[in-house]
C-alpha cells in the first residue's frame, strides 16, 4: 500500500485547477487488514462482528464472497490519498464518505480524487472514490481541504 505522492512535497492552492485528478493504486490484503485492526483496536471480544473482516466462513455466512475491508480502513485509504497529495501544510476541513459496496480482500483498488471546485482560496473541494477492477465504486465521498497560497 505504497503512496505515489511525496507527503513532504507541499501543494499550493495557486497550482490547483478544477478537473485535476490524482490517484493511488492499492491492494489491501488479509495481512494489511489484520495489521490495521490490531493497531486501531478494532479486533477483540468486544467486537463480535469483526470476524467478517478476517474469516472466509463468517463472511460467506453473511452473504459476502470474501472477507471485507473494514469501513474505517477504506476511509483511512482515501484519507491518506488526500493527505499525501496536500503535503504537510494542507488541512482537511471535512471528509464525508459513503460506503456503497464492500471492498473485498485482494481487490485491486484505485483511489481517486478529483478537484471539483478551487475558486475561492484557500479551499479546495474534492470528489473521492475507490474503484475496483470490476468497474464498481465501493466508496464515494467528498472532502473540503485548505492549501497554502504562494503569495
Amino acid at each position: 500500500m505504497t503512496s505515489q505522492h511525496n507527503p513532504l512535497e507541499q501543494r499550493f492552492f495557486d497550482d490547483v485547477n478544477l478537473g485535476d485528478e490524482f490517484e493511488e493504486l492499492q491492494e489491501p490484503t488479509t495481512e494489511h487488514v489484520l495489521q490495521f485492526m490490531g493497531r486501531t483496536g478494532r479486533r477483540g471480544e468486544d467486537d463480535p462482528g469483526a470476524d467478517r473482516f478476517t474469516d472466509l466462513t463468517t463472511a460467506r455466512s453473511q452473504g459476502l464472497e470474501r472477507p471485507i475491508v473494514p469501513g474505517n480502513m477504506s476511509m483511512a485509504m482515501i484519507t491518506r490519498l488526500v493527505t499525501d497529495w496536500m503535503g504537510p501544510l494542507g488541512h482537511i476541513i471535512q471528509l464525508d464518505v459513503s460506503y456503497r459496496r464492500p471492498v473485498l480482500h485482494g481487490d485491486r483498488i484505485r483511489s481517486v480524487a478529483l478537484v471539483t471546485d478551487a475558486e475561492v482560496a484557500p479551499r479546495v473541494h474534492l470528489d473521492l472514490s475507490l474503484e475496483n477492477e470490476r468497474g464498481e465504486r465501493p466508496l464515494q465521498g467528498t472532502a473540503i481541504v485548505t492549501l497554502p497560497t504562494r503569495s
Binding site: 473494514p70 469501513g71 474505517n72 476511509m75 488541512h91 482537511i92 476541513i93 471535512q94 471528509l95 464525508d96 464518505v97 459513503s98 460506503y99
Partner: peptide
Amino acid sequence: MAGSRLET
C-alpha cells in the same frame, strides 16, 4: 457501515 463524516 454505510457512511462516515469527519469534521475538524
